[in-house]
Design a protein around this nucleic acid. Structure first.
Length: 819
RNA sequence: GCGGAUGUGCCGGAGUGGUCAAACGGGCUGGACUCAAGAUCCAGUGUGCUUAGUGCCUACCUAGGUUCAAAUCCUAGCAUCCGCACCA
């Protein structure tokens, strides 16, 4: 273990206090200054406090914000809390308390820890989403969406988590399980629920052209999730009624031998004939009881409905089945089945002995429907399709599609289900009146506040049982009415919070547009990639909606997005209590101090890559910090020589670039090497100041302390970032230095060989080309070797060279003689 | 099935056509200091040769290829990890 020489915690406290007193991180709009908005995704304040992953996230942002601030930008760097959510509610039920208390205690602790880590936030702008002055505007946006028809209620099959006692959005179902309760199977229930019509924005959300600064991975994940696909709608007549299906393969239309309607289709029973009712019901029962977790290799099953559909292309009558493999809410919940050319249809047809009809042949052979063992899904030549025979199937997609259907686009993206049957969330501002129907709460009555004195229940939303909340008068007819008791998904809160930071205290408007115009968009947004398909889609959706309302001018919320890597435990596993590998920031701060921890977590690997915590690793950072402190104890600024000036200016240039590109790991390496280069040399005050400035974003506390020691003005955190003097960067110096290093190592090698043979190398002679003589100092070499080293130019007449080795000297490679 | 990422010394990881493989950190070994330990400082640390010398060989998952030149580009494969998944 390392020895603690300096009380870093004392230094940290000292500067944290001074920063706070001087309010150096509080900012306001300033039209004369260029703004820069750095934001880390805000946390859910859990009872267990910040973990190391949070510390990494916030440190990454803090370094960037401090760097930009020193570069002269007006930097907005705010923090807040995503403080609605189930854990607080559950904890409150368990302890017969109120989630507000839990949440606010947790927030206090979070703030304390964030301050402890030296993160420079403008706390005057903090948002807490559970406060009425924040969620009022969630409700306001909801009303605006309702006004535009984007917030709507419908009865729908929904994902129900029995643990949450609430429904989940599609995005929150992971492999048939709840994203929070990973052991809880999600059930399908049919309920009346509120949705936000995010699908109206699907097309624009699928356009990533304004997101150059986002990682490709996130864009790909979103693209996949939105799942835009071009195809055709085709009408089939069933019982003299048109039923539309969606297909991307109209070229196979003549090969349809049956239809399949989803088992969850709301109008399924209309298709079932009395004779088939029993069989279909038997099948439906089986579908329901099948646990979702087995869905991976679920066998395709179904039942005949008794109805027949007419193929519009050839008038053929084909049976309509219901099946477990058709998704109810994609397309129209019904598909045309072409077993010859679709693998799923093929399996289904084989199982139920439905005919298979080939309509596309491969180029080199002919398919035989009776002998096929799998579907042929590639392109080929159209056959058995009347006038289209002979066409390449790729061309037939359009030809056949055009003739019998209508070109259209479909998305995998579903409307966003936002109703939650829970207490601890934003109340949905809606009133139900028997006479007037669904009535939005008038704007002037916002916010609809959550009651504080309510008694929580574990198995249902406490608002339902709290008459004072739901018993209201209709805003229209003044008659008796009932308030909506569902609350909104917490992702609603985080979909626009970045805008509220710009004007978080505004009680007249959602925000002052002049302020959001100045600060937005976010220039650097930092958070985990797990949000790719939830938060990061929702925040884009809200941004576009608010833009369409005319409130902001942004198309996208952030210019750049950075996803940090995951930090694992020392053993390489996810940190978890059961594995006992959790690293607690509070303990580590006491053990090592904040600055070494900050330095370690951003330098162990590239910040976008996963890495493991390492106790010995953080000790390495600790040693470096300690060395710096020791150095400054006895520093006497003097004059920098050419070499030091070169080193300093090169470091300024490269470190600035590295920080700009979030390559903090490389910046730290260069900072170390810079320190080593002047550690034992004279250095000017200006250059030593530059070093402290370069150190400051990473290790702000000791940087302030050192800044004070060398008599820097004000805070180093507010000093201007150094600019490299390109004229002083001289690569020749670097090369010469490397040559000297090599020579030292060569001399030592030779001495070793000599010693190995029983010789004693007392005197060392080095013969250098005249052009390089200035780089080789006898004194320096002697010190490094620990013996006297004499340096001669090869053309020195007076040199001592008994073996005539001088002639062997090469550029960058002096000859060496030992005796 | 679809998509993505990764593969470099004892370990964590730099390096994405030549200048240069292994920066930087950790670990280990040896030395200095010390009564000793810790801390600190110095040196060494891929393989195999060779050496009164500062060199050569071989090494970046495997196998091919492009190139005057490949860890880096291309092709195929292997391994590990991750995301989505019956989306018609």
């Amino acid at each position: 273990m390392i020895e603690k020489k300096t009380d870093l915690n004392k230094i940290e406290k000292k500067w944290q206090k001074k920063w706070e007193e001087a309010k150096i991180f509080e900012v306001r709009e300033d039209s004369k200054k260029k703004k820069f908005y750095v934001l880390e995704m805000y946390p859910y304040p859990s009872a267990s406090g910040l973990h190391m992953g949070h510390a990494l996230n916030y440190t990454l942002g803090d370094i960037y914000a401090r760097f930009k601030k020193m570069q002269g930008f007006n930097v907005l760097h705010p923090m807040g809390f995503d403080s609605f959510g189930l854990p607080a509610e559950n904890a409150a039920v368990k302890n017969k308390s109120h989630p507000k208390k839990f949440t606010e205690d947790a927030i206090k602790n979070y703030i304390k820890q964030m301050k402890m880590l030296g993160i420079g936030y403008d706390w005057s702008r903090m948002v807490e989403t559970h406060k009425p002055d924040y969620y009022k505007w969630d409700q306001w946006i909801f009303l605006k969406m309702h006004e535009k028809g984007l917030a709507f209620k419908k009865r729908a099959p929904v994902n129900w988590c029995p643990e949450c006692n609430a429904v989940l959005a599609n995005e929150q179902v992971v492999n048939g399980k709840c994203w929070v309760h990973k052991n809880s199977d999600v059930q399908i229930r049919h309920l009346e629920q509120w949705f936000l019509k995010i699908t109206d924005y699907a097309d624009e959300l699928a356009d990533f052209s304004k997101l150059e600064g986002w990682p490709d991975l996130i864009k790909k994940l979103q693209k996949n999730w939105i799942g835009k696909s071009y195809g055709y709608n085709i009408d089939f007549k069933i019982n003299n009624e048109n039923w539309t299906i969606f297909t991307t393969r109209p070229d196979t239309l003549f090969g349809v031998t049956f239809m399949v309607v989803s088992a969850q289709h709301p109008r399924l029973m209309e298709l079932v004939t009395p004779g088939q009712k029993k069989e279909v019901e038997k099948f439906l029962k089986k579908v329901k009881s099948t646990s979702e977790k087995d869905s991976e290799e679920l066998e395709k099953e179904g039942a005949f409905t008794g109805s027949y559909a007419i193929n519009p292309a050839n008038g053929e009558k084909v049976p309509v089945w219901t099946g477990n493999f058709v998704v109810a809410d994609y397309g129209y919940g019904m598909v045309m089945a072409v077993p010859a050319h679709d693998e799923r249809d093929f399996q289904f047809a084989k199982k139920y002995r439905i005919p298979i009809k080939v309509v596309i042949n491969p180029s080199d052979y002919k398919l035989n429907a009776d002998k096929m063992i799998r579907a042929f899904t590639s392109a080929g030549e159209i056959v058995n399709s009347g006038e289209f025979d002979g066409l390449p199937s790729q061309d037939a997609i359009e030809e056949i599609g055009k003739k019998f259907g209508k070109k259209t686009v479909n998305y995998k993206l579903r409307d966003w289900l936002v109703s939650r049957q829970r207490f601890w969330g934003t109340p949905i501002p809606i009133i139900y009146c028997d006479k007037c129907g669904i009535v939005p709460v008038p704007e002037k009555d916002l916010p609809v506040k959550l009651p504080e004195e309510v008694k929580l229940e574990s198995n249902r939303n406490a608002l339902e049982g709290y008459e004072k909340f739901w018993k209201v008068k209709c805003p229209k007819c003044k008659g008796d009415a009932r308030r909506e008791t569902d609350t909104m998904d917490t992702f609603v809160n985080s979909s626009w919070y970045y805008l509220r930071y710009c004007d978080s205290k505004n009680d007249k408007k959602i925000f002052d547009e002049k302020k959001t115009d100045y600060w937005c968009p976010i220039d650097m947004y930092i958070g985990g990639k797990e949000h790719a398909c939830m938060h990061l889609i929702y925040i884009r959706f809200y941004t576009k909606f608010l833009r369409n309302l005319g409130l902001i001018k942004l198309d996208e919320p952030s210019v750049k997005l950075f996803n940090q890597g995951y930090m694992y435990g020392e053993d390489g596993n996810k940190m978890s209590k059961s594995l006992g590998n959790v690293i607690n920031p509070d303990d580590m701060v006491v053990k090592y101090g904040v600055d070494p921890i900050r330095m370690f977590i951003v330098s162990v690997a590239s910040p976008d890559k996963d890495f493991n915590w390492s106790d010995t690793g953080v000790q390495g950072s600790y040693r470096f910090v300690q060395k710096i402190i020791e150095y400054f104890k006895k520093i006497k600024p003097g004059k920098s020589d050419e070499k030091i000036e070169h080193k300093v200016n090169k470091a300024i240039k490269e470190i600035s670039e590295d920080i700009e590109n979030m390559r903090y790991n490389l910046a730290i390496i260069k900072l170390r090497s810079l320190f080593e280069s002047f550690e034992n040399e004279q250095i000017s005050k200006k250059d030593i100041e530059s070093f402290v400035k370069l150190l400051s974003p990473f290790c702000p506390h000791i940087a302030e302390e050192m800044w004070e020691k060398i008599g820097g003005k004000g805070f180093v955190s507010l000093a201007s970032w150094p600019v490299a003097d390109e004229k002083k960067i001289n690569e020749k110096i670097e090369r010469a230095e490397q040559a000297v290093e090599k020579t030292v190592s060569d001399i030592l090698n030779i001495l070793k060989i000599v010693a190995g043979r029983g010789g004693v190398g007392e005197n060392v002679y080095v013969y250098v080309l005249p052009s390089e003589i200035e780089f080789y100092s006898s004194a320096e070499l002697s010190k490094r070797i620990g013996k006297e080293v004499k340096v001669f130019a090869v053309n020195d007449k007076a040199k001592y060279d008994p073996k005539g080795l001088a002639s062997k000297a090469k550029p960058g490679r002096p000859a060496i003689f030992v005796e």
